[in-house]
Amino acid sequence: MKLTLHIWRQKNASSAGKMVRYETDASEHMSFLEMLDVLNERLIAQGEEPVAFDHDCREGICGSCGFVINGVAHGPLPSTTVCQLHMRHFKDGDELYLEPWRAAAFPVIKDLVVDRSAFDRIIAAGGYISVSTGSAVDANALPVRKKDSDMAMDAAQCIGCGACVAACPNASASLFMSAKISHLGLLPQGQPERMERALNMVAAANEELFGSCTNIGECEAVCPKGIRLEFIARMNRDFLKASWTFRADRVEGD
């Protein structure tokens, strides 16, 4: 099939970018990234710079890949990262616009590659359970309701790809944050730090200049791992409860 691509090309973080038009051929069995590989091989042969994009596992689990195809993060297929998207979902003559995630917190590094380290900093602010190696009790000492454990797993599936931020009109990181806050908050092991975690992670996200949530659900629609708005409500609940009841000075005094 023949395709017309309009791809965002930007040399580096400090230069301006623009959309550049390419014509290319693809087979319906290819994955989207393989289609770009083929384009890149041709560009290199012509002495042009290949299109830079992040990718690694190419099986939808590492969260490296991701860009916006025709206005939708990760492209048209629901619950699918771009690396798992196959060309059979497009047709001959299609015109596709490829753009990087756009958010103040995710500056473009080059072409379709953005800097998502803000996510790491949000996790560093509290997205963990403080248990140093060797200090754990027996794994079966604390039973966990299967329902809670399953729901924690639902939330824990987030791959940190950033599509939720890209799709959100406000560039909010709520879905991402809420996935971690819910995952840990649902488990008994996560209770001691639950309030502190919500306060710290939310505060960290503000510092990174993510927008606020309007509960519109674009994030949920593009999330490749089915993270739900329900988790954002959990985060709100934890945050609100924490901001009314939590006294930071008690922690500081130890």
């Binding site: 916006v68 939708v72 616009y97 753009e99 009109p169 406000n170 200049l209 659900g217």
Partner: peptide
């Protein structure tokens, strides 16, 4: 805040589910 959070707009943006 939202304007600051996305200074550069998309060339093409489609709603996926809102």
């Amino acid at each position: 805040l939202q304007n600051k959070a996305r200074p550069q707009k998309y060339v093409k943006k489609t709603s996926a589910g809102s």
